[in-house]
Structures are given as C-alpha cells and as structure tokens.
Design a protein around this nucleic acid. Structure first.
Lengths: 131, 131
DNA sequence: CCTTGACTTCGAGTACACTCTAAGATGTAC
DNA sequence: GTACATCTTAGAGTGTACTCGAAGTCAAGG
C-alpha cells in the first residue's frame, strides 16, 4: 500500500478532471500545465491546486477557447501579476465571444423548435389517418 | 452578359450562404446537398430552394451537429415523407443537446465573469497605487 | 529474483472538416 | 480566334486536438 496521499496519481487526476491520462501529459507537454511535481520517483503527483487549474482549463476549453489561446493564457499566468491586465483582456474577449455564441445558439434553437412543431403536427396527423 | 438569372452560380451561392465554393462542392460530393442542376453547360446553378437548404445546413452546423449526422439527416430527407418521424427524433435530440450546451456555456460564463471582476478590482487597485 | 503492470518519453497515427492543387474543359471579351 | 478567366473533377494537403503505440524504467507482490 501507499502513504496517505494528499496528491493524486495521473489516473486519479484523470478521474478527477474528466480528461484522460494521455491528455494530461499532452497538456503538460505543450505548456498548458506547468511541469507537475514528481514524488519519490519519476511519477507525477497532482496537488489540489493542479487539479483546480486543470478544471479551469477544461472550462475554458468548453467555452470554445482554442488550445493556442489557452497556451497564451497559461504563459501569461506563469509570468505573474504584471500580466493581469492582459489576462483580463483575454477574459473579456472570451466573455463577449461566449455571449455572442449563446445568442446564436438561441437563434438556431428557435428554428429547430419550429421544425419540431411542424414535423410533429404532420406526424400526429398521419397517426390519426392510420387509425 | 448573361440571361436574367433566377439561378446562382457557385460563387454567387457561396456569397449568399457564407460558405466557400470549395465547401459547396465538398458538401455536394459527400451528399449533404443533392446533385445541383447544371444549366446550359456543365456548371452548377443554384435555385432559391437550394440556397434555403444550404442555409439550413449551416445552421445545423452552427449548433454543433456533426457532418456525419447531417449526412444522415440529408439522406432521410431524400427518402421522403415516410422518414419524418426519424427526422423529428433527430431534431428533438439536437434541441436537447443545444439546450444543454447553452446551460453549460452560461455556467462557464459565470466563472469567466467572476474572474473578470476579481482581476478588474486588482488591476484598478494597482492603477490607484501608481498615481 | 522475477513477473506483472503501471508509469515514462516521444514520435506517429487518427478523426474531423475543410481547403487547396493540378490538369483539363469551357465560356467571355476583345 | 485567341487570350484569359472560371469552371470541372479527383485526390492530396492542412490545422486542430487529441489519442495511441513502442520501447524502456521502476516498484510491489509472490
């Protein structure tokens, strides 16, 4: 068995974040995640803070931010507090994009909903005719 | 010059739909669009109806529907009215997906907004200190 | 000690959705 | 009728974001 662990193995981190171990290594390789500490051997051990950062990344991903932009954001983050204004700008741009995307989805949703109603009526009508 | 045209060339169709001529041919090749009529020569001429269908496709795309699913939908459409129930099901599934996606975007937007506020305060504070 | 299995790196492979190119045919302008 | 632009097809190439595989290392259990 192991020691009481406040730090997660790569598979536990994968479990916790919803990413695969492959993807976690990939993200680290391309600089989205800082080099994770290795404990007592060559293997990665993830802290709660690491998991928090990865969760934030997956949320950025889910908003549609590209890997390239996430790399840029992570790089700024590593450079410390003097990059706060740039990060703020990135987040504002992201917010605007996401809001626009949501509006567009609502627009398209209306059309889909309209088609559902039309098709639904026709299908219901045919059901009636059959009986 | 040409004859009074109620039908669009591929570039006019591209203009009208926001897709490229390349993409229009590609969509036709993979069966998203039925074979477009060729008028007086070998060249495609798009009707208003064609444009309408392509607009619908781009809206489906914009909701996140995959090319594969759009192929399936287009195939059902070609098979005629007896496939209405299946198409209805696809649209309902799409609607649910899009609604879920919008909810998720709202969730992430909240986080981004929160960060913007925090970072905004810190940045504003630093501005004050400088002066 | 030796097997088993999970970890490591790093480069190759995959899926998706285009996007472009080459080679040839055809239409339009002078 | 001869440039020149624009169309055609089929197939190759691109960008993005993973995803996998091979080959090697390491650690615990029997």
């Amino acid at each position: 068995m192991e020691f009481p662990k406040d730090r997660l193995t790569i598979h536990e981190a994968a479990e916790a974040t919803g990413l695969s171990a492959h993807t976690l290594r990939y993200y680290e390789r391309i600089g989205l995640i800082h080099p994770i500490d290795r404990e007592e051997n060559t293997r990665r051990r993830y802290t709660e803070e690491d998991i928090g950062w990865i969760d934030f990344l997956t949320k950025l991903r889910a908003t549609g931010m590209s890997i390239r932009d996430m790399q840029r954001y992570a790089e700024l983050q590593r450079q410390g507090d003097e990059t706060l204004p740039q990060r703020l700008e990135m987040l504002k741009a992201l917010r605007d994009q996401v809001e626009q995307h949501i509006d567009e989805l609502h627009e398209h949703l209306k059309l889909v909903q309209y088609k559902i109603e039309i098709y639904g009526q026709i299908v219901a009508q045919k059901e009636l005719e059959k009986s």
